[in-house]
Amino acid sequence: MTTLHPGYNFAYLDEQTKRMIRRAILKAVAIPGYQVPFASREMPMPYGWGTGGVQVTAAILGEGDVLKVIDQGSDDTTNAVSIRKFFEKTAGVETTTETARATVIQTRHRIPETALQEGQTIVYQVPIPEPLRFLEPRETETRTMHGLEEYGLMHVKLYEDIATHGHIATTYAYPVKVNGRYLMDPSPTPKFDNPKMDMSPALQLFGAGREKRIYAIPPYTKVVSLDFEDHPFEVNKFDKPCALCAAEGVYLDEVILDDAGGRMFVCSDTDYCETRRAEGHRGEMLGEAPAFVSREPAE
C-alpha cells in the first residue's frame, strides 16, 4: 500500500460528485445496456485518456480494492501507467497487473484473456457510447429509437457491409444487444472480445466522459452480437499461436521486428503472455524476439 497523498479526497472526486455518479451506476445496473446521463466532471487528464472510466472507477473504488489498468492488452502503456499512478496517489489502493488478483479492472480496449470471476468489476473507458450515432446524429432521435427499440437502421447498416465486403466489416465497437432489449456499443473493444461479455460472472461498467454517459451489464446477462442467419457473427481467427507463449484462441497483435519486413504475432494481453512464459510455455520466436516488446496504441 502506498502512502495516500494528503491533498486529495479519497480517489480524487468529492463526495457529492461520487454520490451523483453512484446513483447513475445504480440505474445503469438496473436497466442493462441503457445509457444513463450523468454530470461528467473535469479530471486532471485529457478527455482522450478515458475520463469517463476514471470517474466510474473513482466512484466505486474502496480502500480494500485491488486495481488493474490496461490499455489495449497492456499494463505498461503511458495511459495505463498514468491512470494506475493516479489511483495509487489519490486512493492509496493496491494495484496489480495480475487479472485474477484484481477486484476492479479499468480498460481502454481489451477484456483480459484470463476469464473474469464473480466479485470482479471491469470498467470500460468509452469514447462514443451511442451505437446509433453514425446513423443518426441527433440525440433526441437516438433516444427515441432506443425507447421504442427501433433498431432496423443498424441492421440495414450491417447488411450493407455484407453487400459491399461479403461479410460484416466492423471489427471494433461491434454492436451488441443486451438482455434482448438495448442496443449497446461495447466501447472500442475488438469484436474478438464480444463473446466474453456474454454471461460474464463479472459486473461490467462503461463510462463515457465527454458524452456524459454511464451504462452497465450485470453479471450473468445475455449479450448477443448482432448478426444475420446467413451471416452469423464470427470472431477474428489467427492463423498461428502467439510467437512468444504459444497461446491459441487469444487476441494477437502484430509486432514489426526489423526493417526487412520481419514480424511476429504476440498476445495483446501482456500479463497473460508473461504468465504463460513464466509457466514454461514457449512460442517459436521466444529467445529470438527483442527481450522487451514495447507497444503503444496505434491510434
Binding site: N9, E15, K18, R19, R22, I60, L61, G62, E63
Partner: peptide, 8 residues
C-alpha cells in the same frame, strides 16, 4: 467517505 463507499 469509507462507509458511503461500502454502503453504495
Amino acid at each position: 467517505v469509507a462507509e458511503s463507499q461500502s454502503t453504495f
